[in-house]
């Protein structure tokens, strides 16, 4: 005697499709922003005149503990030039923008070697600052 195997339907509810698609979209947006440095602790210095800057491939950050980060990844002072150079690659002059974010109280001992490293590899430094409120 043959016993028929029972089949049960287990469909994904079509109501959830919108949510799934949206979550996938957000997931990839966040992945694309993996180089983000917004979690790092620093306070920008103030300046009288600042301009809105476009997008940049590279950002170098010195946080309030005088640690160096390139695109959100911690590096040593001696690694900055190499990392920035690798990220800029063959980018033509004029587009080799490097966002330079330095904690306002960081000392020259820490930020000058970074400036030197960026300019050594032909990076165009953009100091990320806030508008002076005084």
């Amino acid at each position: 005697m043959k016993v028929k195997r029972r089949t049960s339907q287990a469909d994904v509810p079509s109501m959830a499709m919108g949510d799934i698609a949206f979550n996938l979209l957000i997931f990839f947006v966040i992945l694309a922003r993996a180089q983000d440095d917004s979690h790092l602790q620093w306070q920008p210095a103030a300046a009288e005149e600042i301009n809105a800057q476009g997008t940049a491939k590279v950002s170098v950050l010195i946080d309030n503990d005088n640690k160096y980060y390139v695109n959100g990844q911690q590096v040593g002072a001696s690694q900055i030039a190499g990392e920035v150079d690798a990220l800029l690659g063959d980018t033509p002059a004029g587009e080799r923008i490097v966002l330079f974010k330095v904690h306002r109280e960081a000392q020259a001992l820490y930020f000058e070697p970074a400036i030197e490293a960026i300019s050594e590899v032909g990076g165009d430094i953009v100091h990320v600052l806030e508008k002076n409120q005084d």
């Binding site: 922003r33 300046a47 301009n51 430094i125 953009v126 100091h127 600052l129």
Partner: peptide, 14 residues
Amino acid sequence: SVQPDSGRQQTLPR
């Protein structure tokens, strides 16, 4: 996290 950065460009002579 989409707030654009603003600042001042500086070109240092090589």
